[in-house]
Design a protein around this nucleic acid. Sequence first.
DNA 1: CGTCCGCTTGACTCAGATCAAACTTGGTGG
DNA 2: CCACCAAGTTTGATCTGAGTCAAGCGGACG
Lengths: 199, 199
Amino acid sequence: MDAKQMLDRLGETATVCDLADGGSLFRRGDNAANMYGVLSGGARLCRDTAEGGRIVIHRAGPGALFAEASLFSEVYHCDGEVAKDARIAVFPKRAVLDLMAVDGDFALAFSGHLAGQVQRLRANVELRTIRNAERRVLAALSLKLDDGARTVTLPVSWKAFAHEIGLTHEALYRTLKRLENSGQIRRDGMRVRLKKDAG
Amino acid sequence: MDAKQMLDRLGETATVCDLADGGSLFRRGDNAANMYGVLSGGARLCRDTAEGGRIVIHRAGPGALFAEASLFSEVYHCDGEVAKDARIAVFPKRAVLDLMAVDGDFALAFSGHLAGQVQRLRANVELRTIRNAERRVLAALSLKLDDGARTVTLPVSWKAFAHEIGLTHEALYRTLKRLENSGQIRRDGMRVRLKKDAG
DNA sequence: CGTCCGCTTGACTCAGATCAAACTTGGTGG
DNA sequence: CCACCAAGTTTGATCTGAGTCAAGCGGACG
């Protein structure tokens, strides 16, 4: 289930719009009227903290659905905004829910998508219980390996990856260097090869 | 959507069994044949780490569904085991998927349940990006507040709560004491009152 | 009565956060 | 073509706060 498939099924009720970097899709507390699909560019869910900081909770790239969970919620729980200039498909919540109630295959596909999110989030929480930076990074990279493969190409910057796994970028760079020095990984830009380990 | 509602809809194909504390429902890598509902007692998802440790990824109490995400997966990604002596409803994966394909209301309710999980997990990940123990504990407690309320009664032990938010129990106890001393919370057993803050 | 387990507190340590600074890289535009 | 800026990358020095180890308390339960 990706943004294009959604658009195929909901083309009549959906609208597509282009937004500039930093633009707002919705604000926390707004009436949750739509969900979204990222056709190109990116979008992110953010939340303000008490101290004035801003936390990115979720990033969505091309093809991804966005704010799916808000289908079942009265209001948005986060701010939704555009990262990079983006083309976004807007799906009215009602249309999606109606289609789901009527079309079993669509309902299955959509549930499967949500279930995948649940697994990925659980994996992320699990990751963060690993206190040691080297082991956490190795575990995070292993999760990204396709079944059987030994190399990954990161889809995002190392800095973003650091944030994703709950490290500062400095700590990550240092850890990568240590892992490289001890021969546990080999790195070339965004590409990493993991050496076999006893795991 | 809870275990009883599932049982109402799937009574014919479901089975109910009683299991002793520590018993195994499934192992990681097993063919994902069923999902479960906790009628009484509890269940947990665990994973072994490379170092021989054991991480609890998820806890399910009475009424909760269990291993929902595995409906859409060939194999289980975690170990499922029983915490406390429990009565568990076993729903064959096929039966659930078939019902979802046919019954729009059921599909909606189930998707809503998954969406709720996604939100809770995202909140948990967000929580763990807060490095400071005091702020993290306050944020975690705030999340548990019912809309408008100022007091919560924890459903689990403080020790379990500590684990849930990614702190050791020692760190949590100290933090609670500090928060109490500075008047930010008042505590009585499992019951906590949060003082208004500028949040 | 003994054992288990949650709770509580103290002392110490160290890994990762923080602050700071330099250097790539890529894009923009004059 | 170069000046310039922004963002990612890299490295160093320092520090702090949560982890760890250790130990004692008290209630529940068989």
